[in-house]
Nucleic acid binder design. Sequence first.
DNA 1: TTGTATGCGTTATCAC
DNA 2: GTGATAACGCATACAA
Lengths: 316, 316
Amino acid sequence: MVTLLDVAKKANVSKMTVSRVINHPEQVTDELRELVEQAMQELNYQPNYVAQALVNNRTNVVKFVTLEDIDTTEPYYMNLLFGIAQGLSKKQYAIQLVTDRKQIKEGNFDGYLITGARSSDYSLFDELAKPFVLFGENHRGFDFVDNNNQLGGEIATKYALSRLYRNVIFIGIDVREPFEVSRETGYVNTLQQNKLIPQIYRIPNHSHAAQKIIKENLGKFHHDTCFVCASDRIAIGVVRQLLNEGAKVPEDFGVIGYDGVFLDQVSNLKLTTVKQPIFAMGELLAKMLLQKIEQDGSPQGEAMLKPKLIRRQSTR
Amino acid sequence: MVTLLDVAKKANVSKMTVSRVINHPEQVTDELRELVEQAMQELNYQPNYVAQALVNNRTNVVKFVTLEDIDTTEPYYMNLLFGIAQGLSKKQYAIQLVTDRKQIKEGNFDGYLITGARSSDYSLFDELAKPFVLFGENHRGFDFVDNNNQLGGEIATKYALSRLYRNVIFIGIDVREPFEVSRETGYVNTLQQNKLIPQIYRIPNHSHAAQKIIKENLGKFHHDTCFVCASDRIAIGVVRQLLNEGAKVPEDFGVIGYDGVFLDQVSNLKLTTVKQPIFAMGELLAKMLLQKIEQDGSPQGEAMLKPKLIRRQSTR
DNA sequence: TTGTATGCGTTATCAC
DNA sequence: GTGATAACGCATACAA
């Protein structure tokens, strides 16, 4: 392993000069700096992050805590993780994945990225002794990254109206969590701006629940309705049952999903959906946490990235 | 932070004694050992893995390298990752996720876990300066963990025959990679043992390709056929198209998938499938790598875990 | 501007 | 069996 000392010898300087070239290049003369940089090049010097971490009382490790049950069919988290990894890579941070709550406080690490948090988990956060950032909207003042759920609800609803579906119905998830409330709000606001009456169903987040609701209520729906759904799973169930019933999609019924997880591999129809910039969200999440760690836990605020409507085959 | 020295003071011993209690407890008298252990308890001492890593010339970090395209990554990767995390957690190792090949050699780390490797990647491995273990069967002598693909092919085929489908057709993936060849071999061997003639189609790993092959060939298939598929994706496409064509599943046509990724959320029918013990595979992968690191790169061999047939609704 | 000394927390080595 | 000391690679404080 090439160390500071090796570089120092080659450049005929002390190792402090080498250290400074790396951390405070402005404090060293151009001449020496170039000499040192050349020596680093030639020796292919790679700083030892472990030694750095030890002096700085850091570990270069963050915990990624998943509080909900992971449903492996969602490519979603994998993308999030890759985004996080990207955000961490510049400072050479590594990840410990945590699903067991007992492991939350174990070992050495510098902070947390937390996902799948429900309101009932908020009390847990007060106990955490290290900086953390949540993945997912909350209104308790905890730093977070999310997509702008309200905007997403608006985008979907506005698009449905622009496609001239006469009715726009929201099929939400039956949890009163902020992300759901915000998506609904986006829908409701848009309808009211257009002097239309909101109509909301709330069901479990499974395609089968969505199929059921369509099956039971299809008679009630006009043949000119767009369903704005709170998730792609729900949307897929809606589409499937509509097709099962012989309804025409997208001509008579439109369907818009949420998440932007493309399940084309397994779904009948390419779904129009509100896509979250998952990778970018993961990257930002990581950067916020690293900054928070560096700033000794100072608040980073709330970051809501813009979702984007992807027009595909389930709307006309 | 509580250090060895803090514990030593409390127990009125030197820090070396404390260190020994942790690493070589047999070298210290029972009396002192208990004293030290009590002090550790009271102070809630947690060893500093960074300091350990520094002195051991380790980093406590491994790279998880995904060589295939993120978009095509299988849904089971998330489970794999959690299995890996579990296997790493005992030694408090952390993960760096790598998708960009440029990052493969960057930074400090102790070894690699590599997934998505194709034959064309093998040359890359010879350049790696650190220990690695592959996720996925190979016959070049690289240490790996996989499920027993040949056994999986056998299990599926035997089950199809036991359900008295008169014909059993294999729908494979059109790559000549070891996992695919092995699955096919399991199928072929089983058919030949039963004096039946193998019939194999090879298509891209997409449900749409599977739909196409069924659509184009349905006329040729007897109404008493079971399709043994090389992936769940393919199986889902087969089921969907069979249903589209009005065929009876599972009565006239059986379908068996491979992977055990339950896509119930989005599929019409609960798939009979060969399930790999993904989590356990991840855990083993991690343990093999840790051992290999500890043993300075000594070969760990090949580990093939048993897949398991999950009987569900796509077979009679 | 540059170099020297010291310490981060742990473990191995060698005395006692 | 136990303790003092040096070392891992780096960065901060201080001296030159």
